[in-house]
Design a protein around this nucleic acid. Sequence first.
DNA 1: CACGATTATATGTCTAGACATATAAGTCAA
DNA 2: TTGACTTATATGTCTAGACATATAATCGTG
Lengths: 242, 242
Amino acid sequence: MSLATDTADQPTLYKRIRADIEKRILTGEWPPGHRIPFEHELVARYGCSRMTVNKALSELAQADLIERRRRAGSFVRRPQHQSAVLKIADMRAEITSLGRAYGYELIGRKLRAATAADRDRLGVKKAGKVVAITCRHSADNVPFAVEDRLIDLASVPDAATADFSREPPGSWLLHHVPWTEAEHTISAIVADDRTAEALDITVGAPCLVIDRYTWRSARTITAVRLLYPGDSHRLVARFKGG
Amino acid sequence: MSLATDTADQPTLYKRIRADIEKRILTGEWPPGHRIPFEHELVARYGCSRMTVNKALSELAQADLIERRRRAGSFVRRPQHQSAVLKIADMRAEITSLGRAYGYELIGRKLRAATAADRDRLGVKKAGKVVAITCRHSADNVPFAVEDRLIDLASVPDAATADFSREPPGSWLLHHVPWTEAEHTISAIVADDRTAEALDITVGAPCLVIDRYTWRSARTITAVRLLYPGDSHRLVARFKGG
DNA sequence: CACGATTATATGTCTAGACATATAAGTCAA
DNA sequence: TTGACTTATATGTCTAGACATATAATCGTG
């Protein structure tokens, strides 16, 4: 039998190049406007032919994550649409890209055996352990969103010992577990006592809710609910049509 | 000197192949499930190398227009409702795709000179005429969404005489004015008296708001606000990662 | 300094191969 | 009929080149 390696099964080379770059963009390590390495530099780094690098970059361009300019190079695009809004897993990147100061605060963290509700939320059947995290993100010291997250320890055992008091769980996950698929559900609720206090709004005020469920090759990773003040936050998505 | 030919300037070969196939899919000539010619057949038809054909097909696959299966071939995908949620301009299609009966009701229609608020909402400066429409969409006879729409008559003069008592303005526009670009803003509000009555919910209940602003080569067409009951409606978006 | 011409360079497209791999389809035995 | 094995084949990935083309940078001239 074969044990899963640390970095899991290696996809093809061009996919690895694509994922490497995508990760740096999504985590904000390479911010909008940043010039990514030239093709010939990536060729040298990965020891492959130019066509392989080109394929990776072409796909990123098709996904509107980067913009390619002849003679100048390839540049990270500013998040502007569908992909950005719903793909962004890193709140820090979302807030700093708005030109605001990012703040983070851990409210609660519990390690427990998965309850029936937990299993339902994660979409798993077997009872295992989970980490439940509640935290708050702020922009310019104003509450921006509260996050209520569940991580399946069967898929991400390291999360049991990770320190979420400094690093938001979204960022931590992004750096430790490359995501493959996600589903978002957007809805609206009115703030209850707990939410109102966390977001510093009045009870009964509208809130935008984003539920994101993330998995990786049929393996559940995390389920997160983000609550935004409904009257101050906007999700903007822009499309080009045919 | 050169006159523009009928088909305009020829793009690169792989783009032509891609466009040829895309057209047949979008016109329905090749319906969902249809098997696209094998790569080697396209190679023969276009007289190019396999890599060129492969690039065209790979891009179509990345755009989720086709699905590629080893040994079997490439097949036209059925338009998936998932990531299309925000693209869908036709409420009837949205509701019937959920397997529910669609209902439509015109609540109000006014033709007027654009007020300052109208101009602001449409993002135009010149004072012109607009049509303001309020209507309701229902699913299985339950209110599904109320629509509040403004159409710029300077861009769509025919809208002045269109009969919106039977056909929803969204559908009418879709058939009369091909859209090119749209911007969506998603937020949350609580229902006021008027909204509560229209959606048959209680005052203060949460509502999901989608503001869609549509234009066509820098020309404003329409601005629409859709209000959904926040606790019953869900916007689902699903993505595949690297 | 302003502006046009030249050059260098990064990306854009393409080829003619190669081997890998998943899997539909066929073959054969229990 | 069913299951296990084999084979054929279409796609998946990759290479080491080539020439095209747009354009940032540089150079030269008025």
